[in-house]
């Protein structure tokens, strides 16, 4: 079974993110980048499926991103991925979800696949659509926000989070699955595995190697960011003093009379 995991490198959740000079992208100075947590769940699930199949599978990690994203692929290899593919071209800076789906479609098609695993959402732009766009482009079914996954021969049984509950869905392979928190607990790579991963080959097909070029990427973009700005900062308000009973009474009064939210 050929498993392809699509992953993205994103700023750490604790990072203080500021706007860059161009006013449309972020200033990356001093930011620690990590594998998008949901993509890490996807990778871990791929590795577990391989282990459950007694190794009768390959896990290939694909990452579209600038040179720094190589680090994410090295981490993936250290965790146990069999191969890694890094796609980058300067024309991909600022590419939107529609363009990324086009690029990933070309990449996964070239690799060949039975199962594509993605994170449900990336925590940077929170757009949550590349995986599902990829499924639509490939004409494949998908299971979104999956918290439990089982491979049964040529089909999948997935538990997915829906509003107020869990939906159990069955879908034939090939298919796209997006990982939700709760699917698994990703492993930590061992030090020897990290050392070994540093020397591993990483595939770099380039846009041309995928049958694409900068023009095709630009043509596929459907959206444009006009500007980026820090969210308006909130100011601390007032502390309500007093013993619990008294403070609670004052607060209830303020919420009704002053804030008018009750």
């Amino acid at each position: 079974m050929r498993i392809v995991v699509c992953a993205k490198q994103v700023p750490d959740t604790e990072a203080r993110v500021t706007v860059g000079k161009d006013g449309r992208s972020i200033d990356e100075t001093g930011i620690t980048f990590i594998i998008n947590p949901y993509d890490e769940f996807a990778l871990e699930e791929g590795l577990r499926i391989k282990e459950r199949l007694g190794g009768q599978a390959t896990v290939t990690m694909v990452c579209v991103g600038p040179p720094r994203a190589e680090e994410a692929l090295r981490t993936g290899l250290a965790m146990g991925a069999d191969a890694a593919v890094h796609v980058w071209d300067d024309s991909l800076a600022g590419a939107d979800a529609a363009a990324l789906a086009l690029v990933l479609q070309a990449a996964v098609t070239q690799l060949g696949f039975d199962l594509i695993l993605c994170g449900r959402v990336a925590i940077d732009d929170a757009s949550a659509q590349v995986g599902l766009r990829l499924a639509e482009r490939l004409g494949l079914p998908h299971a979104n926000a999956v918290t439990k996954l089982e491979v049964q021969g040529s089909k999948l049984v997935a538990h997915r989070e829906v509003e107020g509950g869990v939906e159990v869905v069955e879908l034939p392979l090939p298919a796209v699955v997006t990982a939700q928190k709760g699917l698994n607990e990703p492993r930590y790579p061992t030090i020897p595995a990290i050392m070994k991963a540093r020397r591993r080959e990483i595939g770099r097909p380039g846009l041309a190697g995928l049958g694409l070029d900068a023009g095709k990427v630009a043509d596929a973009c459907r959206s444009e960011v006009l500007s980026l700005a820090p969210a308006p900062a909130r100011k601390g308000g007032r502390l309500v003093a007093g013993e619990p009973q008294e403070a609670a009474r004052t607060l209830a009064h303020l919420l009704r009379e002053e804030a008018k939210v009750l």
Binding site: R234, R238, L239, V240, P244, A259, L262
Partner: peptide, 28 residues
């Protein structure tokens, strides 16, 4: 959290929250 909150109470939540619950129940 107090730097972003419009209203804050410094105290043990196990005392403050039940007191607030009782207060709001009565108010509502």
């Amino acid at each position: 959290i107090f730097k972003v909150a419009d209203y804050g109470i410094v105290g043990d939540l196990f005392q403050v929250v039940p007191a607030l619950t009782a207060e709001l129940r009565e108010m509502l």
